[in-house]
Design a protein around this nucleic acid. Sequence first.
DNA 1: TAGCTTCGCCGAACCGGTTCGACGCAGCGA
DNA 2: TCGCTGCGTCGAACCGGTTCGGCGAAGCTA
Lengths: 359, 359
Amino acid sequence: MNIGEIARRAGVSRSTVSYALSGKRPVSDDTRRKIQQVVDELDYQPSASARALANGRTSTLGLVFPPAGNHYTGMQLDFIGSVVEAAAVYDYDVLLSPSGVDSDRSFQRLLGERRVDGAILMEIKLEDDRVDHLAAVGFPSVTIGRTARPEGGWWVSLDHTALVEACVHHLADLGHRRVAFVNRPEQLLRAGYESAHRGLDGFTKAAAERGLTVRTYCCGDDAASGQACVERILRDDPATTALVTLNEAAVGGLYRGLALAGRHVPRDFSVTGVVAGHWAETVTPQLTAADVPAAELGRLAVDLLVERLDHPDAPPRHHLLTPPISLRASTGPAGATPAPDAGPAGATPVADAGLDTAP
Amino acid sequence: MNIGEIARRAGVSRSTVSYALSGKRPVSDDTRRKIQQVVDELDYQPSASARALANGRTSTLGLVFPPAGNHYTGMQLDFIGSVVEAAAVYDYDVLLSPSGVDSDRSFQRLLGERRVDGAILMEIKLEDDRVDHLAAVGFPSVTIGRTARPEGGWWVSLDHTALVEACVHHLADLGHRRVAFVNRPEQLLRAGYESAHRGLDGFTKAAAERGLTVRTYCCGDDAASGQACVERILRDDPATTALVTLNEAAVGGLYRGLALAGRHVPRDFSVTGVVAGHWAETVTPQLTAADVPAAELGRLAVDLLVERLDHPDAPPRHHLLTPPISLRASTGPAGATPAPDAGPAGATPVADAGLDTAP
DNA sequence: TAGCTTCGCCGAACCGGTTCGACGCAGCGA
DNA sequence: TCGCTGCGTCGAACCGGTTCGGCGAAGCTA
């Protein structure tokens, strides 16, 4: 069912069919109707490949995310979903590429074979070769997150520094003096992931401002690591009364570790951080946290990218979001109960999940 | 940087370049080397659009998943990730389409404009117009899940019936006599989602076999709904001592509701179901559950689809997986604590959208 | 040395759209 | 009645690959 067939049946030339469908040149009403009728009859839809070849645009966006050796977080999932749906609004499809570096075969195909008109990059690093590469060749792209030098770039980002600062101030306001920071896995920090670095910066800065005693930790993206991390925190400084985390996947383990150590949240210990909002409500006690507006970030990224594609010479734009902290049930005033005396965790009562939310 | 440019610089014809690169006809070593040198020098990669137009294959697979009005579950996320990575192994890219029905614009584009060589469909229904449509036009596709008449189709699926049966038997073996079933949202059940239906079937069947007293519920995909659902369960029959769920997103709320009602898991109340394994370990107590091998399902789906694309006349194949239940900490023997007195449970016939399957 | 293969390469057609220049024809004014 | 304008349509070229038929030169046999 190609355009030639339509043309034959409608008794016109191929170009007339093309113009009738695109509206790029006037076509008489009679002819247009005739063509439309044949098109409807045969349920004709022009081939994407042919169109892409002819006009050099694929109507496809690339979404580049790091290969999830293990699993994705709720945040990342929300991104993907919102990007796809936002793109659909503009009649763009979304091609997924699990690429961590620009030498990945998938990334090469995306760009080299010109499969996409533009790209959205997730989980970027402060020094990101993919971003540098795209900037160098002038390929239209938008990053979710920003590099160390975001000037002149197109991006949407969470202000992780400010968010973590806000978490620290929230805890300090509640009277906490000894606070731990639970970051993403060490491997990601080493690799230079921006959220891990900027979050850590914010933590350090705010803690200094408030004169807090702090320790920072890296923690694997899973429950077991979270649990182990809490054990270390309480071993390193049993007087710790609160923690801030960027690690959504570890929160379940953090909670469990605290419960096993006999620390009740929020009575004895406060937990806060930066996670997806809807997810913060699934844990008990519900997590006081800066809710990541993943859907909005995804949508904004698509808006920006489409604008950039439509206006190649438009000056760079960006959005830096700083969602407020949603107060839920996982933080409370420090010192309501004196921290259990330092001794080894041998005193641990309760091996019970800490599910009690009784008053 | 097109093939003509390469040909000029190498001093050969375009067809020779094509053959040298594809290997579909012999080319002398000298010529091949010369061409390869120019290709390397200019970092030439053939245009995907042009190639797709010429040979009718896009090297792209479509992944059709339901638009997440709200959010995706960990399971779905794992699917997407594993499909993309498995496809990359075969040098296929993956195009995402958020389509619930075959009239969705995105779905139409995928097929009508021939953007993909084949499609993988997620979250299918017992009667699924997308599946019927694809079968009718002979479009190569594989479903994750199966319709009411899976014969002759290509699919990979979890045996939800068997999995839920196993959960019920597990609970019955522990002595539970009054068990509730927490299904996906009512809207999905009505729409005919196969996991919801087959899971319910398995529950009903196994409960009958074991002579259990049961009630079934639908539950929204979020924590608040889970909490409300537990409240209803305990109101409808306070003697209930266990539940089985297919609703991953609700588990956090179920746990919370039980805690608020003073039921300790697993001492007073057992919880089990079908969820992503890594996720089951993030909740406390860790969930005894049939672990959904999402990554394996995704990989198998891609394997099948690629096989179908490579051998258009191959007979249909499928994989039905029945992962074992992983015993964790959320189930235990019934009757450790006598259930609070029965109350008016018998009198409450429950107005659950006709979804209750009580004896 | 004539005749036949075989090898390696070329030219042209094709995939299915888009787009540009040109052309026929109707309507208009002079 | 002639010439001009402008609308509507057509034909051809092009996008960048793939593929088929054929042709010239080299190598072989008779």
